[in-house]
């Protein structure tokens, strides 16, 4: 029997002057297998001046993301970010396909399981009958073959779960942690 597919959802948020991130690993039902989060990082005023606009990307990608990925015991099959994070230019580890999933407003594809390539890095996949297809955007480091393999896994997972929903859970969990700490 093949190993179950593991999906890693990464989210970094800014709460006040602090940054913190979380990484949720789920199975294809969306049930959490692991969840790691970082403690809030509050850059000093001097660090804010010295880093300038690169402070936030540096914190999210170099500090938070790499720290969380180190904690993973087994690498995930797919590494899923929010579309905003991916659009900002993901420069993390490329050991696994990095992508963003997003609900679209497009008309449904012919049948469940269909995929439509909308661009070199963008696909629409039909996960449920009659619903709008899900938009999948891959990072630049993911080649076409890796994209095809990732789509197969996404279709399998999307049969049981809402692929975009776990990111909301990560955000909610991080916010609850901030409230708990404060």
């Amino acid at each position: 029997m093949a190993d179950p597919i593991k999906l890693a959802y990464f989210m970094a948020v800014k709460e006040g002057a602090s940054y913190l991130g979380g990484l949720l690993v789920t199975d294809t039902s969306g049930i959490p297998l692991d969840f790691r989060y970082t403690e809030p990082i509050t850059p000093t005023r001097l660090q804010g001046i010295l880093y300038g606009k690169s402070l936030e990307p540096h914190l999210k990608e170099e500090v938070i993301q790499k720290t969380l990925l180190k904690e993973l015991k087994t690498p995930p099959d797919l590494f899923i970010l929010s579309a905003t994070e991916l659009a900002g230019g993901w420069s993390g580890d490329a050991k696994y396909p990095v992508l963003a999933v997003q609900k679209s407003q497009e008309s449904p594809l012919a049948k469940v399981g269909d995929a439509f390539r909308a661009g070199p890095r963008e696909l629409l996949i039909q996960l449920s009958e009659g619903a709008a297809p899900m938009r999948v955007v891959f990072a630049a480091s993911v080649d076409a073959m890796a994209q095809e393999q990732a789509v197969v896994k996404l279709l399998e997972a999307g049969y049981h779960m809402d692929l975009a929903e776990p990111l909301e859970r990560v955000t909610a969990a991080l916010q609850s942690l901030v409230v708990k700490d404060s």
Binding site: D34, E39, I41, V63, I64, T67, R169, A173
Partner: peptide
């Protein structure tokens, strides 16, 4: 920036 430590938070999740 200080190296952050990751915490396990499966219970909260």
């Amino acid at each position: 920036l200080d190296q952050v430590t990751a915490e396990a938070g499966l219970e909260s999740m």
